[in-house]
Amino acid sequence: MTIDRLKQSQLMSKEISDLIISHEKVAHVQLQNPLDHALLILIKSGYTAIPVLDNDFRVRGQISKNEILDSILGLERLEIERLHDITVETVMKKKIPRLKTDTTFSKALTTSINHPFICIEDEEASFVGILTRSSILALVNRYFQQST
């Protein structure tokens, strides 16, 4: 095995733990929050989507600006007054990618292709943080910069 192949193998088998953005730094909402609160968090954070957590700090899905806007789209206008009456739980996306803290970089790279971020859970399924596609690409970029 050449040195480049060895470095590539080491990168792909590396655990993702060093790349995780801790839950303390991640904007999120809870299931019962109204959509106006979720929209405010999304706008203030600058993100297009954020995790949705339950009271036990477990990931239940994600909410995005698109889901919120779709839920208040009337026939002729946005029905903004409905934002406070609808909960996050009713419009959130429930099927989202999740990985464990000991997942390999290779699996994380593959998973990130279609998702801007991936929720990371521990062995008890508690929310640990997120892994962003940009942090994965930054590591890949560093790898290629060092290889040239």
Score class of each variant (00 low, 15 high):
M1E: 12
M1Q: 10
T2P: 09
I3A: 12
Q8G: 09
Q8Y: 12
L11V: 09
M12G: 03
M12N: 15
S13Y: 08
S13I: 09
K14T: 13
E15W: 07
I16Q: 02
S17P: 05
S17T: 14
I20G: 05
I20S: 03
I21N: 00
S22Y: 08
H23Y: 06
H23R: 13
K25A: 13
V26G: 00
A27C: 03
A27P: 00
H28I: 00
V29G: 01
V29C: 01
Q30D: 04
Q30L: 08
Q30N: 08
L31N: 09
Q32I: 06
N33L: 09
P34H: 12
L35R: 10
H37R: 10
L39W: 05
L40P: 01
I41R: 03
I41Q: 08
L42M: 08
L42S: 01
Y47T: 02
I50M: 02
I50H: 02
D56H: 11
F57V: 05
F57M: 10
R58S: 12
V59N: 03
R60M: 14
G61K: 01
G61W: 00
Q62K: 11
S64P: 03
K65I: 00
E67R: 12
I68N: 04
I68A: 02
D70T: 09
D70C: 06
S71L: 11
S71H: 04
I72F: 09
I72V: 15
L75M: 10
E76W: 07
E76C: 05
R77K: 14
L78M: 15
E79K: 11
I80K: 07
E81G: 05
R82Q: 15
R82Y: 12
R82N: 15
L83N: 06
D85H: 13
I86W: 08
V88L: 02
E89M: 04
T90I: 06
V91H: 02
K94V: 10
K95M: 07
I96S: 04
P97G: 08
R98I: 15
L99A: 13
K100A: 08
F105Q: 06
S106E: 14
K107W: 08
K107I: 15
K107V: 15
K107D: 14
A108I: 02
A108H: 07
T111G: 07
N114D: 15
H115V: 01
F117E: 00
C119R: 02
C119Q: 01
I120E: 00
E124L: 11
E124F: 06
A125D: 15
A125K: 14
S126W: 00
F127P: 01
V128K: 04
G129E: 03
G129C: 01
I130Q: 00
L131M: 09
L131Q: 03
T132Q: 02
T132D: 02
R133Y: 04
S134W: 03
S135G: 03
S135W: 02
A138D: 10
L139K: 10
L139R: 08
V140H: 02
V140Y: 07
N141P: 00
R142E: 13
R142M: 06
Y143E: 04
Q145I: 11
Q145N: 13
Q145E: 13
T148R: 07
T148D: 05
